[in-house]
Amino acid sequence: MNQNQGIEFALNHGLKISIEKKYKYIARLDCGDVCLGKRFAIQTEFLEQNSEIKVVGSNVLAVDSNDVYLYAINLPLDDQSIKNKMYINSMLIHPAIMFNASIFNTVGYYPVNYKSAEDYALFFTISKKFKMANMNQYLTQIEINEKGISVQKRKQQVKRRIQIIKENFYFGYYPIYGLVRNYVLLFLPYNIILEIKKRIKK
């Protein structure tokens, strides 16, 4: 883009180009992340065979900026489990997903008023209209980079996540637990969180 307006504007710019070109499916991948195997072919085939699913993600492997393995992320696979656990954290890993492009006619683009959590906000909007799934395969390797948005703007991201949970809140186990968990994360140093993830998810 001619001017840096932030990632949410860049994402929407890319979406608009993809939709204007009438692409059927749109996939995400961040700088530093890598597709594993025939990721795009596998996700495309899944969406073709499961027409009721409009967004599909996958399990992922996490490495540091030196390509050293850190941990694996295994996600809920079915639509209802994803929607329940979205209140805890995003159950779709942004650079591992593929959309059916038709959904954007209904849900619009990435919201621009949730800095560092635009994907989380979009997933909640999508969850109210469409079915989602994850594939039980490691199809993407993500890089945990100290200079990335998720690390550099972690507190802002958690604050926005709390805001999104409140806006979609109902009295139930997952929303209550999700709020408590995210308030705890807000005050925990990132290096402690990373160590916990490495020990739990190895």
Rank of each mutant, 00 (worst) to 15 (best):
M1Y: 09
G6H: 10
I7T: 06
E8N: 09
F9M: 08
A10M: 09
L11K: 13
L11T: 00
L11E: 09
N12Y: 10
G14S: 07
K16T: 14
Y23E: 12
K24W: 01
I26C: 02
D30P: 11
D30G: 09
C31S: 11
G32I: 02
D33G: 10
V34L: 14
V34T: 13
C35I: 06
C35V: 02
I42K: 05
Q43M: 14
E45T: 12
F46I: 00
S58F: 06
N59T: 13
A62Y: 01
A62N: 04
S65Y: 04
N66R: 11
N66V: 03
D67Y: 02
Y69F: 15
I73H: 12
N74P: 00
L75V: 10
L75P: 02
D78L: 10
D78C: 07
D79H: 10
Q80Y: 01
S81P: 03
S81G: 04
I82T: 05
I82Y: 05
N84C: 06
N84H: 11
Y87F: 15
Y87G: 08
I88E: 14
N89W: 10
N89V: 15
M91N: 10
P95D: 10
P95Q: 10
A96F: 06
A96W: 03
I97K: 03
M98W: 05
F99K: 08
N100H: 13
F104H: 09
F104D: 05
Y110M: 08
P111F: 08
P111S: 07
S116P: 00
A117M: 09
E118T: 01
D119T: 02
Y120P: 04
L122N: 01
L122S: 04
F123G: 02
T125I: 07
I126V: 12
K128M: 01
K129L: 02
K131L: 05
K131S: 08
N134H: 07
Q137T: 06
I142R: 07
E146A: 05
G148T: 00
V151K: 12
R154N: 12
R154H: 14
Q157C: 15
Q157I: 00
V158N: 07
R160E: 15
R161L: 11
R161I: 08
I162A: 02
Q163C: 09
Q163G: 05
I164D: 01
I165T: 11
K166E: 14
K166Q: 14
F169A: 07
Y170D: 00
Y173M: 09
Y174I: 04
Y174P: 06
Y174E: 12
P175H: 07
P175S: 09
R181W: 10
L188A: 04
N191D: 13
I193H: 06
E195H: 11
I196C: 13
K198W: 03
K201M: 14
K201G: 01
K202G: 11
